[in-house]
Each structure stands twice: as C-alpha cells, then as structure tokens.
Design a protein around this nucleic acid. Structure first.
Lengths: 135, 135
DNA sequence: CTTGACTCCGTACCATGGTACAGACCCTAT
DNA sequence: ATAGGGTCTGTACCATGGTACGGAGTCAAG
C-alpha cells in the first residue's frame, strides 16, 4: 500500500513538495499526524494511496478549469453525497469548457491564417494585427 | 474616424479604463500626447481607430493564450516585419493550443461521465473522485 | 555516531493581470 | 461661474497559485 513521505507523494502527483504543503494549507489535502508516542517530538508524516488519488484529482480538476476553491468543494461533496450539487458543478463547468474550447479553436484558426499569410516567400505585409480581425 | 476618450476606447475594447491604463504602462498601447500648446497644462488624450484595433488584438491574443509579454512582442513584430519570428510564435502557440484543446476535451468527457453516473435517481456512490481516474 | 538528505514550520516573496483609490485637473452644460 | 462628470498621475492593493527560504529536527547508511 505504498507508504510515502511527502516527497514521494509529490512525485506521485507530479508536483513539488511545496505545492503539496500549499494544498494542505488550503485544506485540499489532509495533514496526517506525526508518528511517535505522546510527549515524543514526533517523526515524519506518512501518506498513502488515498492521498495520491486526492492529489491527482486536484490536478485533473485544475486541468478542467476548476479553481482550487471549487475543487475543495468537490472533495467535500465526495463525502456528503449531495448529487444535485455535484451535477450542478459538473454542468456549469461543461458549459464553460464548451465555450473555452470554441474560443481556442477560433484562436487556432486565426493563428493558422497568420502562419500561412506570413509565409517566408510571400509578399505583402505580414498581417499580425489583422490576423485576428474577424472575431 | 471616431476620436475617442479613454473611456470610449475602453468601451470599444470591452475592458475597463484602468485596464487600458495598465496596458499603456506595460507598453502594449501608446499614450498619446495631451493636446494644447506648449506651456499649456494640457487637456485630455484622444484615441483613434488604430488604438481600438490594437486593444482588440490584445484581447484576441489573450484568448489565444499569449501572455501580455508575448503580445507585446507580436505588436513590436508587426512593425519590424520579421516573418520568421512571427511564424515561430504562431506555430508554438498552435501546438500549445492543440494540447490544451485535447486536455479540455478530456476533462469534458470526465465531467460528462461524472454527471451521468451521478444522476439523481442512480444508486451506488457518486464517484466524484473516481470520475477523473483514467487520465 | 557522524554526515548528508529529507522533513517540518513559519513566514516571506513571486508572477500575472488586473482593480482601486486620492487628489488634482479639465471640460461641458446649465 | 459653478456643478457634474470624466481625466490624469501615482501609488497601493487584490486574487490566484504557487515558490523560496531559514533554522531546527529526524532518519538511514556507512
């Protein structure tokens, strides 16, 4: 079950150690107790698969355009089983993604036009400013 | 030829006045001279179509994922006619857009899966955490 | 039983892209 | 000529998502 130190967790999630700590501060990841009996100064915290899953979920959520705050809500929701709210967040984000994807595809088309019209051998101006002028 | 005040320019570009000033500070937009003869304290700056075009270009560039710094370079390039560099920037950005679009489409698929599996009447857990677990 | 790597904790700093004043000034309509 | 809006300048502040440190503690290998 792979018991990791913070560096191992960070590696598994493909982030830096400081980023893991940041997510802990933000409440997105738990901060496990330090081991060692009472009164003892305590050793090093250990992390398990569950933490790796949560960390990867955070990264996926970011890729989907959720803010860390929204991701925190999703993680909380995962425990409470509020299906309506979960679907609401999902649908909102899907709509936003549809918009964003369309926007990026438009931008890509503009850039392709720019690259073509600005080819090395072509004459006339290289229409950088003009290349986006239809959107 | 539509001579605008800064508020008119901002409106035409669908941004706030403070944003226009910010772009001026960053060197993305020029700051025209204040009118009025020498020695005179000067009136209000005026903006023309050209400025509207530049402002709109900045917004399009941002939509395409360029940073303001890169947009500044593109605007500078527009004057220097360095076609090779312009194409290089365009191709870089197209590649980045391809990646980003694919990523967003994947995220959208995950969210659709989440929304479906988390439908109101369905039984079993609402797999928020699991919904991204394949990417 | 020391050395070197890693952890812990707090706090400070960073980049990006704005946004918000305050206190002058200016311009136009009444 | 005066009131109201918009402008100008400088400087300060903001949100987001990290990144960097210093100084102390801990741990495993040689």
């Amino acid at each position: 079950m792979a018991v990791l130190t913070i560096a191992g967790l960070a590696r598994a999630g493909n982030v830096g150690v400081e980023t893991v700590r940041y997510y802990q501060r933000r409440g997105l990841l738990q901060t496990p107790d330090r081991p060692g009996g009472a009164g003892h100064a305590g050793g090093v915290r250990r992390y398990a698969e569950e933490d790796v899953r949560r960390l990867r979920f955070i990264r996926s959520g970011q890729a989907a355009g959720f803010t860390l705050e929204q991701i925190a809500e999703l993680l909380a929701l995962d425990a409470t089983d509020d299906r309506a709210r979960a679907r609401e967040l999902a649908h909102e984000r899907i709509a936003a993604l549809d918009l964003k994807i369309a926007e990026l595809e438009e931008a890509r088309a503009s850039l392709r036009r720019l690259a073509r019209e600005c080819a090395d051998g072509s004459d006339g101006p290289c229409p950088i400013l003009a290349s986006f002028e239809h959107s």
